[in-house]
Deep mutational scan, measured.
Amino acid sequence: MKMAVISEHLGLSWAELARELQFSVEDINRIRVENPNSLLEQSVALLNLWVIREGQNANMENLYTALQSIDRGEIVNMLE
């Protein structure tokens, strides 16, 4: 549920979040190519990849820290 809210509000910031979460330029470009027409779909794809990559370590605290690092703390505030 929280992931959906984050995806809805990320907009163009999804790529900046991807870099903050240590995704490569290739990963970011692949997300763009696979989801060409929708920032929402790109955001969802990023968060899904992050959960798959991090497994047990994919917790909201880590995601909140990354969001705050890219000056998107207002998204965190909405969810708390």
Rank of each mutant, 00 (worst) to 15 (best):
S24I: 04
V25C: 09
I70F: 03
V51E: 15
L67S: 01
E54T: 05
I28K: 03
E34K: 04
N35K: 12
E20Y: 07
L47T: 03
E20C: 10
Q22Y: 09
N77V: 11
F23C: 04
K2F: 08
I6S: 11
S13I: 01
W50Q: 03
N59F: 06
Q22M: 13
E80G: 15
W50D: 03
Q56P: 12
N62T: 15
S69H: 15
L17N: 02
I70H: 05
W14C: 00
L17Y: 05
Q22F: 11
H9R: 06
D27P: 01
M78H: 09
A4W: 05
M3P: 05
N62H: 12
S13Q: 06
A45E: 13
T65N: 13
Q22P: 04
K2E: 15
N77H: 09
N57Y: 15
T65R: 12
R72W: 01
L39T: 15
Q22R: 11
L39S: 09
A15I: 15
N62M: 10
R19D: 07
N77K: 14
E8L: 06
L40P: 05
F23T: 00
A18E: 06
Q42M: 09
R72N: 05
N37C: 06
V51A: 11
N29P: 00
Y64G: 07
G55F: 02
A15L: 14
N37Q: 05
D27G: 04
A66C: 13
L10F: 03
I52G: 06
L79F: 06
Q68A: 13
A4R: 11
S38E: 04
W14K: 04
G73I: 05
E41H: 09
D27K: 04
E8D: 07
E80I: 03
N57F: 05
E54D: 07
W14G: 01
A15G: 11
E80D: 15
L21A: 00
M3S: 06
S38D: 12
N48H: 12
V76R: 08
N48A: 05
E16D: 14
E16V: 12
G11W: 01
I70D: 01
S38T: 07
L67F: 02
A45M: 09
I28P: 04
L79G: 06
V33N: 11
N62Y: 13
L67M: 11
M3E: 07
E54M: 07
I70C: 06
E20L: 05
I28L: 04
H9Y: 06
A45I: 05
N57L: 11
R53E: 04
L39D: 12
G11I: 02
N62I: 15
Q56L: 09
A18Q: 00
G11Y: 05
L49H: 08
S24M: 05
S38W: 02
E16L: 09
L40M: 12
R30E: 07
E8M: 05
N37I: 08
L21R: 00
E80A: 11
Q42L: 01
A66Y: 04
F23S: 01
A15Q: 09
E34R: 08
N29T: 13
R32M: 06
E61C: 15
V44R: 15
Q56Y: 10
Q22K: 13
L46M: 09
L10N: 03
W50K: 03
F23D: 03
A66G: 09
S13L: 05
N59I: 06
N62L: 12
R53S: 03
A18L: 04
Q42K: 09
E26S: 12
R53K: 09
V33Q: 14
Q42E: 00
W14T: 02
L17Q: 00
A4Y: 05
A18N: 03
I70Q: 01
L67N: 01
L39G: 05
S69A: 12
M3T: 09
N48Y: 02
P36F: 03
P36M: 12
V33H: 12
E16N: 15
L67K: 00
E34V: 07
I31S: 00
P36Q: 15
Q68L: 13
N37Y: 06
E20Q: 14
M60A: 06
Q56V: 14
Q56G: 13
N35L: 04
L63M: 13
A15R: 10
N35D: 02
N35F: 08
G11D: 09
R30L: 08
A66W: 00
P36Y: 04
G55E: 07
Y64K: 05
M78R: 14
L10P: 02
Q68M: 09
H9G: 04
Y64T: 12
E74M: 00
V51R: 14
L79D: 04
L47S: 01
K2Y: 06
M78F: 10
N29V: 08
M3G: 04
E20A: 10
E8N: 12
E80T: 06
T65L: 11
V25W: 07
I31W: 01
T65Y: 10
G11P: 00
A15C: 08
V51F: 14
R30W: 06
V25L: 11
S24K: 10
G73A: 09
L67R: 02
Q22N: 11
E20T: 10
S24P: 08
N77E: 11
L67Q: 02
L39V: 14
G11M: 05
I70Y: 10
E34D: 09
M3F: 15
R32H: 07
G73H: 05
R32G: 08
V25A: 14
S7N: 07
D71F: 03
N48V: 05
N37T: 11
W50C: 03
L47D: 02
L40D: 07
W50G: 00
E74T: 02
L40R: 15
V76C: 12
I75Y: 03
M60Y: 02
M78D: 13
E16M: 08
A4C: 06
V25R: 12
L39C: 14
A45F: 03
E26A: 09
S24L: 02
S7G: 09
N62A: 12
L17T: 00
N29G: 10
E20H: 10
L79R: 04
D27F: 05
N57C: 09
S43W: 02
D27A: 11
A58F: 08
E8Q: 14
L46A: 07
T65Q: 13
R19S: 10
I31P: 03
S38H: 06
L17P: 01
A58L: 15
Q22A: 12
E74I: 11
I28G: 01
S7T: 08
L79M: 14
S7D: 01
I31M: 04
W50F: 03
K2R: 12
R32L: 11
Q56E: 14
S7E: 07
E20G: 04
A4L: 07
W14Y: 01
E74P: 07
N77W: 13
V44H: 15
Q56F: 14
L49S: 14
Q68S: 09
L46I: 05
S24C: 06
M60D: 08
M3H: 08
R53H: 02
L17R: 00
R19H: 14
N48K: 15
E26G: 10
S13H: 12
L21K: 00
V25T: 09
V76I: 14
G55I: 03
E54Q: 10
I52V: 11
Q68N: 13
L49E: 12
S69N: 11
N59P: 08
W14D: 01
W50E: 01
L12F: 12
Q22W: 04
N48F: 01
H9L: 05
V76S: 05
T65D: 13
E74L: 04
Q42F: 01
E74F: 02
S7V: 10
V25G: 10
F23H: 01
E26Y: 14
A58R: 12
L21M: 14
L63S: 03
V44E: 12
E16A: 12
V76P: 08
P36V: 03
L12K: 10
R30Q: 12
G55W: 00
S38R: 05
R30K: 14
G73E: 08
E16H: 11
H9P: 03
Q42V: 01
N29E: 12
Q42N: 01
W50Y: 13
Q42C: 12
A66P: 11
L39N: 09
S69R: 13
Y64A: 04
I75H: 03
I70R: 05
G11L: 05
E74H: 11
L49I: 12
A58N: 15
